[in-house]
Design a protein around this nucleic acid. Structure first.
Length: 720
DNA sequence: TTTTAGGGCTTTTTT
DNA sequence: AGCCCTAAAA
């Protein structure tokens, strides 16, 4: 059984997988089998007798976590439980759920998302009577978050403080008072509070250190200071820390990621074993050459060179358009061409852009040509007003009602609690030191309140109380459905949004469906469990590859994915690289890394476009061609013109979309065939799914065991 | 006092 | 598309 490791890993990967104790750094270039190394290593540890419950995997997205957990269980076979794999944030939330009372919070805390947290900042500014035009709430929020994440890295901050910093400090304190009062935490707190907990309570830390003896961290180049410290604390005793990452793919510095974490790993953890993976199993050589050529322009880049055995492949295309509309037209044509001539399915194709705003034109043109597409992320499902409203109601019902959620829905739909009434409630709540909901509950005693206001508040409170009672007995989706009906949400939609009421209502049905399936899968976790899950999912997590559609997303969202064909649009100075990064050399390098990430998602076909002018904020602006273009193609000025006419429509270009081939494994069986497996015995092939990631074979073995076998494991399958 | 209608502003990337 | 503001209607 040792063979699955030797058979499916190259010598470098194997070296990493078989390293058991002590720190391990895997520098894994794009497409070099990073996920494979982590999952195989987890499986290997378990084969060595280490209980799965002692292994902890940390990732950035739920999607990555799910995929990893999934693959490990595939490798292990059914009977063994997989190790714990979570995102940093959900791991933090889980710790807090058990331990937050040590920090003076009540145990059922609310997680505020960015919008909620912005509200809280606004409230803080208001209570301090700071003029919004002096510090914009948004800026303040970003600054608070930044300060929060930095302080934990280095406690000896320079003492010189500008008045701005002092003011910021005050706002930050007011903000955190508000959170605490509402028993709420923000995203940053999910990492910082566990740190604080571990610092203040060494015995609790010890418990977690003893529980997780082997740590594996994905995308280590994107860890920020709190994440770094959390990791360091957890493995301080046993030093069994394995991190995987690629400095050239670090693209979240603006969010606090610190590339030094990976660069200094060997210094931080003496005795580190380092493995570098350079063989790329994803892309053809010309694509890799182009990507290498770009990343080499970065002063700070790791000296590794990706290579591939997948053949030269198609040349990277460049299609300069005159404006954003022509660009969208090109994209549509390329997609149609790839589907017709290149034998690709729509789902094998992806279009990446720097900013969400760029998706609209693309959508228009794809729609006009009946090309099926799906937009990943953006102002997504959970950002929509109707969904946020209902979730706010549910939070009020599930937790001790917090002010932010209360304010959101207290008059939505309208129920006669307007500004004046609300102001009086706010004053009453401040005076009594209770939440707004408590104040509303006791509205009768607020003398300044009009009788109409008292009545409206009382009936609102009565309704919420009824629902809080119902929450004990009803499953979450039923409760939510009753709620939507009871508050007359649909009527409000029809009145306020006559055009889109039905669409919005569909979104709510979808929310209810999600709740129902969550309830089915986690019958015991109830409404709170659902709300926690909802607040920690990201756009990419909800994306499924099942429909046959072209995928549209930001370059950031593309990280970790791969597609047969990739089109990157908007290669213009000011767009990509983004205008806000042009001045700062370090930020510019990050833009370059971002472009590198996008390019290395492509397996066999890569196309880049630009527009000479485009509509921005309602105005036509002209942009220079992105500097990345010449860096990718290594063009000299005089060659440019000649190359530029090499349009996609040329015969020569068309030949480049060769048939598929390289990565398709030969299977000697197909769906419906009888097969035999050394461990599981005989069975019938239910399905073979190829395309995204690795090939997955589902087999229903006799005796009703259904097994899902990934690429390496099904090598043991033989036609029976 | 609350609601409604209309105009301005925004958007870089996100757990 | 959502949010915030203002002015006027209900």
């Amino acid at each position: 059984m040792t063979s699955i490791f030797e058979e499916n890993l190259n010598p470098h990967q194997l070296e990493a997988v078989k390293h058991i104790d002590g720190p391990l750094l895997v520098v894994a270039g794009a497409g070099s089998g990073k996920t494979r190394v982590i999952t195989y290593r987890m499986a290997y540890l378990i084969y060595q007798g280490i209980p799965a419950s002692r292994i902890l995997g940390l990732t950035f997205t739920n999607k990555a976590a799910d995929e990893m957990r999934d693959r490990v269980s595939c490798l292990l076979g059914r009977p063994l439980p997989p190790p714990l794999v979570r995102t940093f944030h959900s791991f933090g939330a889980r710790i807090l759920r058990d331990e937050i009372h040590h920090l003076g919070y009540k145990s059922r805390f609310v997680i505020y998302d960015e919008a909620d947290s912005l509200r809280a900042v606004k409230e803080a500014l208001e209570s301090l009577k700071i003029k919004e035009d002096f510090v914009s709430p948004k800026q303040a929020r970003v600054a608070i978050s930044k300060q929060k994440n930095e302080v934990t890295l280095d406690r000896s901050l320079p003492l010189r403080k500008s008045s701005y910093q002092i003011q910021l400090r005050v706002v930050s304190e007011a903000y955190h008072d508000i959170l605490k009062r509402n028993n709420a935490v923000d995203f940053d707190d999910l990492l910082i509070l566990p740190l604080k907990l571990f610092e203040d309570h060494p015995r609790i830390l010890k418990r977690y250190q003893d529980r997780y003896l082997y740590l594996l961290v994905d995308e280590y180049q994107d860890t920020n200071a709190p994440q770094y410290r959390l990791i360091k604390m957890l493995c301080r005793k046993h030093k069994n820390i394995c991190v995987v990452g690629d400095p050239d793919q670090s693209i979240y510095r603006w969010r606090g990621s610190d590339i030094r974490n990976i660069l200094n790993f060997e210094k931080d953890f003496p005795g580190t074993k380092k493995v570098v993976l350079e063989q790329n199993y994803r892309s053809t050589t010309l694509i890799l050459d182009a990507a290498n050529s770009l990343i080499q322009r970065n002063e700070h880049h790791t000296t590794k060179k990706l290579w591939s055995e997948l053949g030269e492949g198609a040349k990277v295309e460049y299609l300069p358009a005159k404006d954003h509309e022509e660009e969208a037209e090109f994209v549509t044509e390329v997609v149609q061409h790839l589907v017709r001539e290149g034998e690709l399915r729509h789902r094998d194709i992806a279009v990446f852009y720097r900013t969400h705003a760029q998706s609209r034109v693309l959508e228009e043109y794809l729609l006009a040509e009946d090309v099926p597409y799906v937009v990943v992320g953006g102002p997504g499902f959970y950002g929509r007003k109707e969904v946020k409203d209902i979730l706010a109601y549910l939070r009020i019902i599930a937790y001790d009602p917090d002010d932010i959620s209360f304010l959101r829905i207290v008059n939505v739909p309208r129920r006669g609690i307007g500004k004046v009434t609300l102001d009086k409630l706010v004053a009453a709540s401040r005076e009594k030191g209770v939440s707004l909901y408590e104040a509303a509950k006791d509205a009768e005693s607020v003398e300044s309140l009009s009788s109409a206001g008292k009545r409206a508040a009382a009936s609102f409170v009565k309704m919420i109380e009824e629902f809080r009672e119902k929450a004990e007995s009803l499953p979450p989706h039923k409760l939510a459905e009753k709620l939507v009906n009871r508050v007359g949400y649909f009527d409000m939609l029809k009145k306020d949004f006559p055009e889109s009421a039905d669409d919005r209502m569909d979104n709510l049905w979808e929310l209810l469906d999600t709740m129902q399936s969550f309830h089915k899968e986690n019958p015991s976790s109830g409404l709170e469990g659902f709300l926690e899950r909802i607040s920690l999912i990201s756009d990419i997590d909800t994306w499924e590859d099942k429909d046959n559609r072209v995928n549209l997303m930001t370059v950031h969202n593309s990280k970790g994915l791969e597609f047969d064909a990739v089109i990157i649009v908007g290669l213009e100075e000011g767009i990509f690289p983004h205008a806000n990064s042009l001045e700062d050399p370090e930020r510019l390098e990050e833009e370059r890394r971002l472009c590198y990430v996008g390019m290395t998602r492509a397996k066999r076909f890569l196309c880049i476009t630009s527009a000479e002018s485009r509509l921005r904020h309602g105005l036509f602006v002209e942009n220079e061609e992105s500097r990345f273009i010449s860096e990718i193609f290594g063009w000299e000025e005089d060659l440019r013109e000649e190359e530029a006419h090499l349009r996609f429509h040329d015969k020569k270009a068309e030949q480049k979309v060769a048939g598929r081939g390289q990565d398709v494994r030969t299977l000697d069986f197909c769906e419906g065939d009888r097969v035999a497996h050394p461990t599981f015995g005989e069975g019938t092939v239910v399905s073979i799914e190829r395309g995204y990631g690795e090939t997955l074979v589902r087999v229903l073995f006799d005796g009703d065991t259904e097994a899902r076998l990934l690429c390496p494991t099904f090598a043991h399958l033989r036609k029976a």
